[in-house]
Every structure is written in C-alpha cells, then in structure tokens.
Design a protein around this nucleic acid. Structure first.
Lengths: 238, 238
DNA sequence: ATGGATCGGTACGGTATCAGACACAATAGG
DNA sequence: CCTATTGTGTCTGATACCGTACCGATCCAT
C-alpha cells in the first residue's frame, strides 16, 4: 500500500512509533474490516497476521480444559495482537476475537517479527505494550478474586469506553456474561444496578455511558491501575 | 565471583542459557540468602537487583487502591525476577517477596539490562519467560473467576511443589488466605477437604504433599495449562 | 515452667452468586 | 403480516463463601 499517513492513524502504537519504523511497516500494512466474532488468533496456533486495530474491541479469552472461560484482556486502538509476537513465543494459548466490530491495519506476523529484530525502538515499544497487557491481566485476576459483579462490570464498561468513539457500546448480556465468567441473569441485574445509579443507560443490545465520572468513582477500586501503567509505558491514550 | 559452574546451577534459566551468555553474567552474579518475607521488588519502584532463585518461592502480588490483594504469579528456580526487566518497563506495579525462604543468584538490574541488549539469545530466553509468567497470571485470572477454593488451593500447592525439593511446604493458613484472596478459615476447611481425600497432610505451619498424582487429578481443570506453556517456551522444568 | 504470642479449628448468621426454568419483548426473515 | 429467533427480565431454591467472633493448641522467650 505504502501511502498511509502516520499522522491520521488512530491506532496508538502505529502513531507513537518513530517515523522510520512506521515507514518500514507502512509498505506492508493492509487495511481490513473486522466483523464481530472475527477470530484474530486461535489458541495454540501460529496466527498469520498481526493486527493494529483502528476501531472496535477485541477480547483475549483463556479457556480451561473443561471449557470454562473468561476474558483476561481487552485490545482496541490502544494496542495490537498478538502481543506475544514480540516475546518470541510463536503463539499463545488464548483465543482472541472481535467483540465490537471494527477495522484494523494488519501485517503478516513474519514480516513484523523481522522488522522488530532490526529495529530496537520498535521492539521496545511493543515490549512495553506486552507489559501493559500483562498488567491488565494481572489486575483482571485481582478483580476476579475480590470484587463484586457490578464493580467488575463497571470496570469492563470503562475499559470499552476508553477504546470506543462516543458513548454507545453494542453487545448483549449473554456476551458479557461470558467475558466476566458469570451467569447471564447476573449481568442483567448488575446492569440494572448501574442504571439505577444513573451511571449508564441500558437498552436491548446496547449499553450507553451516561456519567463517566460517576462510573469511575463507583469503580475506583477496580479501575485505573493498569490504565496508569499503560500511560507510563506507552504514553498518552488515543 | 566468576567461578560459578553453570552445570551445577539449579536455576532453570541460568542453566538453559548459552555458555557464552552465562559466562558474561557469571562475572557479576552474587549468591544471596533470601529469608521469608524478603522483598525482591517494591511496587512502582525501580529495583536494584535481578534475582535468579536457586531455592525457595517468591510471590508476585497485585494490590488495589483499597488494599485488597492477591497473588498473580509464583516464581521459583524456574524463573527470575523482575520479569518486566526484559520488557523495558523500568519497574512494575507489583510487590514481589519471598514466601518460602531460599537462596538466589543476583545481579544488578542495570548490568543485566545491558547484557540483554547485546545478547539476542539471552533476550529471547528471558522474553519467553516473561510470556510464561504472563500466561500464569492469565490462568490465575481464569481460576479466580470460575474455580472453587479447594481447587485453587490444590493448584497453588502443586505450583509450590513444582518449585520445591521434597514434599513439605512450610507456610501458614493466614499467608495462604492472602495469596488466594479468601478468608483464613476458608483455607482451613479447604485443607481439611484435601486431607480428607488423602491428597495431603496438613500440620501446623506445614503442608505435606501425600499423593501428587491424585492432587493433579483433583485439580485437572485448574492446573496444567501454564505449566505446558512453560515447557514449550523454556524447556524442561528443573 | 510459665506467660504471651502465634496459629489453627469451629460456629453462626448473612449474602452474593449460582443453576435452572420460564415468560415476555424486540427484532429479523419469509 | 406472521413466525422464528434472539435478547431480556424474573422467580425459586440451593450453596459457596463471607465477616466476625471465640477458644484451644502449639510454639517461643524469658
């Protein structure tokens, strides 16, 4: 393609890398649409492409042998997938798929890997992103252990809101219940609770953030740590 | 020091790195004892030394603003600390401290960082370890979300057993309850349950693994995934 | 040996969440 | 327009786990 202008890109990693790094990547970057449920990476398989989302939200999900699953990380235009690429891992045990439809620039994993090996700055940036993502999963572990469903839901809404334009997030209770590893009716009642506190509106298939500040206040113990860490490691958010 | 023989080292990373890499490290490695509760790394602070444990077990603990905390990873002679060193992160938001007393080789972080920059093989090995640790925290998140206390306890005992000589693990219920982020009496009853199934013995201050295979069977849905991933990424366990 | 500290066992009531089922509402497709 | 499908609200037990409290057992230091 080779004609992409770095300054109008919305993906934070693509925008923050050096112009040189971007120039090398740019030749191979390819724009693609990512429909809901599109699988960016399969568990324990090398994936052909790395994706730098421009819009939409992807979930990283871990599964147990018996099929229990939960989300351990969220990726939007703040990041890339698979983060393990820079860690020399080949592949990882997660399933990564689109949860809110969007678009991305993609590049063959092999190409990116080769570029990383020759470009210390790029390697550093992506390594720091891998760390940011690891921290996200660590705080997910903490909050799964100690926080109540409504707080975890609030955190999740905030994390999605960070990665979206506007205040609407379109997804179903069913989907959410899988992400949080709770029953579907528990999501319904937790949403009602947040709605009762006037933090969100909830309609069929859509959650609308109504009062972001109050939502953050409600979730103060469960949201914020890994976001701070992202800013320290990568720089300002999109 | 400079006289340490690589082939009698018990730390897996030190043993598996190339002889060249080890030679460079070896000049600066220093042997230290690590008493229980010794803090290897403080939250959000650069730590002076990297540690490669020879024995004993360290815990990585994440804390919320209100002070809730839980363990998100375990490090023994399978690894090193801080893993974020290879990710160019400077420091990380966790607290890392010894839970079962032991010993380690240590090296100033700056020195190790410089060596990593000149040694692609070493960088790769430590990056893969960072990935293994991230996977561990991801599966901790999963198991915090979906598994019962007795299963999580079994997982924890197995992970410690992997990193210890013999079958005895000495620690208190109190300590364990913090690691698992549950009440102390819940640990007591969960231990009784495992003891009732003849999987362990439990005495004051000590847990003794009695039937490792049965313990693994009991924990089959909660233990094993990240261990497989470690073996794939790093190689055989110690 | 003795007193104090630590550690472990147990009990009681309370509640967040689960499992499963069912009915209703909204959308989509023919 | 009607029907099938999908999404949401609600109910009824059951239960795993919590908060708190208390007491006995074991260890340690003097």
């Amino acid at each position: 393609m080779g004609e992409i202008r770095q300054d109008i890109i919305r993906n934070n990693l693509l925008r923050l890398m050096s112009a040189d790094s971007f120039a090398r990547l740019g030749e191979t970057l390819e724009w693609v649409e990512l429909p809901r449920s599109f699988e960016l990476s399969k568990p324990n398989e090398a994936c052909p492409y790395a994706y730098f989302p421009e819009a939409g939200i992807a979930s990283i999900v871990a599964r147990s042998p018996e099929g229990q699953q939960t989300e351990i990380g969220v990726i939007g235009r703040d990041g890339m997938t698979p983060a393990s690429l820079v860690l020399d891992a080949g592949h990882d045990p997660y399933s990564i798929f689109m949860q809110v439809q969007g678009e991305a620039y993609r590049i063959p994993c092999e190409t990116l890997q080769a570029l990383i090996h020759e470009d210390r700055d790029l390697q550093g940036l992506l390594a720091r992103y891998a760390q940011a993502l690891a921290v996200q999963s660590a705080y997910t572990a903490l909050s799964n252990a100690v926080h109540h469903i409504d707080e975890r839901l609030a955190r999740w809404i905030l994390m999605c809101h960070d990665r979206t334009d506007g205040n609407e997030i379109s997804l179903t209770h069913e989907f959410l219940s899988i992400m949080l590893a709770v029953r579907r009716p528990s999501v319904t009642t937790a949403l009602h609770m947040l709605e009762g506190k006037k933090l969100i509106y909830s309609e069929r298939g859509v959650i609308i953030v109504r009062d972001r500040a109050a939502l953050e206040a409600f979730a103060h113990d469960v949201y914020g740590e890994c976001e701070k860490e992202y800013e320290r490691l990568i720089g300002t958010r999109p």
